[in-house]
């Protein structure tokens, strides 16, 4: 009886290794959209299409870590000459800095949902702190993948000048850039 109990305890322990799990970013449901004011009139939007990353997530311990990098050669605004300008040395300077990277190592919870991810955004060779606020967060079992998927929507507003991206500031092009982040990650 004791052995059986010990065995089942061991089995349980192995099945639930402190609830920490690794999730792979689902690139088909993970995008960053930026928004920047166009001369105070309308909002220009653009999207970063190629990305990869992983999330370590422990719902019980309420901890997590996310690492995502974005290929800046895949900027998409719907206006090809604008994509080229954004990739030039005036903005992202992709020849020298082809990717941007976000590492979030502090997950703030509200109940069992992630409410904020605090981390560091690196682009143009500079790193600065960024806090992503969740506007949606949920986990579900995807019927096609038959696996748990966690994800949500996050947003933040950064000042691009913090990364040395200063083009047009003196001509009235905005410094504030709002980032809207869709993310889903599949349990491995």
């Amino acid at each position: 009886m004791k052995t059986l109990l010990a065995a089942s305890t061991l089995a349980l322990t192995l099945a639930l290794p402190a609830h920490a799990a690794t999730y792979a970013i689902d690139p088909t449901h993970t995008f960053v959209l930026y928004e920047i004011s166009h001369f105070g009139t309308s909002t220009n939007r653009g999207r970063f299409d190629r990305k990869e990353g992983t999330v370590q997530f422990d719902r019980e311990a309420k901890t997590g870590k996310v690492e995502v990098s974005f290929d800046l050669n895949a900027i998409s605004t719907g206006v090809a000459p604008l994509d080229k300008h954004l990739q030039s040395a005036d903005f992202f300077d992709v020849a020298k800095h082809p990717s941007a990277r976000f590492v979030g190592d502090k997950f703030v919870f509200n109940g069992d949902k992630v409410a904020e991810v605090v981390g560091t955004l690196t682009m143009l060779g500079k790193s600065a702190p960024v806090t992503l606020k969740a506007t949606n967060f949920n986990c579900y079992v995807n019927p096609m993948l038959k696996r748990e998927v966690c994800g949500g929507d996050f947003e933040t507003t950064i000042k691009r000048s913090q990364w040395g991206m200063n083009w047009g500031l003196n001509m009235g092009v905005a410094d504030d850039v709002r980032l809207l982040i869709q993310v889903e990650a599949v349990k491995q």
Binding site: H29, F31, L33, R45, Y140, G152, L180, Q182, E184
Partner: peptide, 14 residues
């Protein structure tokens, strides 16, 4: 909204 979890987006232009 995708699976009550995250927001799918798409763009129409021009």
């Amino acid at each position: 909204l995708h699976f009550g979890t995250s927001t799918l987006r798409g763009r129409f232009g021009q």
